[in-house]
Design a protein around this nucleic acid. Structure first.
Lengths: 356, 356
DNA sequence: GTGAAAGCGCTAACAC
DNA sequence: GTGTTAGCGCTTTCAC
């Protein structure tokens, strides 16, 4: 773990120049004759000198030129796509990304914030896990720049980037309504999660705008795994007046519902939140709410860069979604038979997509 | 970007103690009376002091207690799972992870290595992109600790963690052979990639061990997207003596082959490298070579920690794979009808799974 | 138990 | 163009 290596002083000594001259050359500051520069450069590559960024940042009173990203789980493709988007934007400014998974654990989230604060990151992008984020408010007051992602933080005011959960869910629901369905089941997980609440709200608003009423007996909240969702689907189908269509609140729910429908050879209409890469191969008709998670990350990173450049206003951006329908037809070579029920993905828009 | 905040001196002054005493308290060094400690702690939380890790590491001559992970693309679920595995192991030692995508670009890879070296990371885990890694050899000689992941690096000698590409491919091929196939097509991408070569070698060895011979006319290398793979499949099926089964060298190829087979309503046997999450729903019989990418990451991280603890030998570990078969039967509630043709996933084994 | 002094590797501010 | 001095925020060393 000891990492010493040659220092600027070593280079200066060997090149027979002053420390500051080496600094000038290494940092391309100019004001050095080309003869001197070459001499220094030669020594640098001879002894394999690498500038110590920690010392550099310390002396200059800068942050560590790193950004922290606290997400739920890096292995989740949604979050890793977000991380990639962040990375893309940061790369243009020579900023590096520290990724850390909170595992939805409130205490771990706090620890990570503290840890990254100690490392003097330039800013933080956080998917809020804790129910209360006032502790981050304190850090923000002390000068930490923060952007919240995917969910709003409670008790704090800072930039936020969200998905259009309501609009997307409403569009999916309208799709099912347009196909004549009046008994639509909803399968989703934990209603405590903000995104889930939003998706339910989108569903409800579409139903109500169509003049219908939400039937609570058709709503099943709680399933986590696809197997849970399949079981819930089975139960729903055994009702006296079973649903004729399904709205699945995320990709795992969609897979679960599809699995059960297929098992029973019942081909009800289904719509779901989140696109699924290999949905073409399901050979079942399904409409999915798609969006670009990489763009979510990029947007958050851009907001953070703006803050680092001095902006102090609070922005809230909503990333649009689009409805993609997979026909399920056997010979279908076109994957997506209808698209963009909402506007195309679009940035900088603070407006939510109205239930069209 | 200026991040000053209160320092230890401020705390010392306000608490009426010496700088060193604050340091002792903050670092839980002991040798401080509880009265003094409490006094210091109070000031710390009053003014919201956070220790500056950069300064701490600098003075102590330590590395930055961060590890760099250079992969191809963080948005690729394979790599993000690897990253998660690395993160899990590092977390136990208060080490943070800097993730960076090389985008398979040789120059970018070099830049990232330099950048992370400048930040004085404790070590590096790299998925080698460049064809030649002698430049990393120089850094290793200077004391950088490196573990290579998923592919061996050429021209350098350091710890390496690989997948059992050959064994997995051989097992997949044997599965097809056991089902009576003698004309097996292979669809894979760029043969310049090491993993692809290994998979082809595994295929060939299985064919040859069965007494058969590899028919070059049935091998299609080049496809990148599923659409490419589908087109290649179409071509193969139009041959005078078409193949009766397919071996797809990665998940995208598998999806492509399946798409085309389904389009033509031809239900040939197919085996592929990489598991696919929603393969149950394909409703097509398929055998996939599965493995645990998180374990790959964990293993690499463990090797790196060992190096950081002083080990100087060179280890090469191979992560086993297993063959998972999806029946494709309509009412199949069991997802996996046969499994573990090879040994179960197992660590620390340097032996390749023999073609069983 | 506590503290004063020195200095990690570098850059800012000023001299020459 | 180049060098000198001071000091970033902390830990080390050693003295009391």
């Amino acid at each position: 773990m000891q990492q010493t290596g040659p220092t600027m002083r070593d280079v200066a000594q060997l090149a027979g120049v002053a420390l500051k001259t080496v600094s000038r050359v290494v940092n391309c500051e100019g004001g050095v004759s080309s003869r001197t520069r070459e001499k220094v450069d030669r020594v640098v590559s001879e002894i394999g000198y690498t500038r110590n960024e920690m010392a550099s940042n310390l002396r200059a009173g800068r942050s560590s030129s790193m950004i922290g990203l606290i997400i739920e789980d890096l292995a989740n493709p949604f979050y890793s796509a977000v991380a990639r988007g962040v990375e893309q934007v940061l790369g243009t400014r020579k900023l590096r990304l520290i990724t850390a998974s909170s595992e939805e654990d409130e205490e771990r989230e706090r620890e990570l914030v503290t840890d990254l604060q100690q490392r003097r990151v330039g800013g933080l992008i956080i998917v809020p896990a804790a129910p209360d984020h006032r502790f981050i408010g304190l850090e923000i007051d002390k000068g930490l720049q923060v952007v919240f992602l995917d969910r709003p933080a409670t008790g704090v005011d800072s930039d936020t980037v969200l998905l259009d959960n309501r609009g997307g869910s409403a569009a999916a629901t309208e799709y099912l309504l347009a196909r004549g369905h009046r008994r639509i089941a909803v399968i989703g997980h934990n209603a405590k999660v903000w995104t889930m609440q939003e998706r339910l709200a989108g569903f409800a608003s579409a139903i109500e705008e169509s003049g219908g009423r939400v039937d609570e007996s058709l709503i099943r909240l709680g399933p986590v795994t696809p197997a849970d969702a399949a079981a819930a689907t089975k139960e729903l189908l055994e009702m006296d007046a079973p649903p004729t269509a399904f709205f699945a609140c995320n990709n795992r729910m969609t897979v679960g519902v599809l699995t059960e429908l297929r098992r029973q050879c019942v081909y009800h209409d289904i719509a779901g939140f989140d696109d699924i890469e290999s949905a073409v191969l399901f050979q079942l008709p399904v409409a999915l709410v798609a969006y670009d998670p990489v763009e979510l990350g990029r947007t958050a990173a851009r907001l953070l860069l703006e803050r680092l450049s001095g902006r102090r206003t609070k922005e809230q951006l909503v990333i649009n979604t689009r409805l993609v329908t997979y026909s399920g037809a056997k010979g279908a070579s076109r994957r997506r038979s209808a698209r963009s029920l909402g506007q195309p993905p679009q940035l900088g828009s603070t407006a939510e997509v109205p239930a069209s």
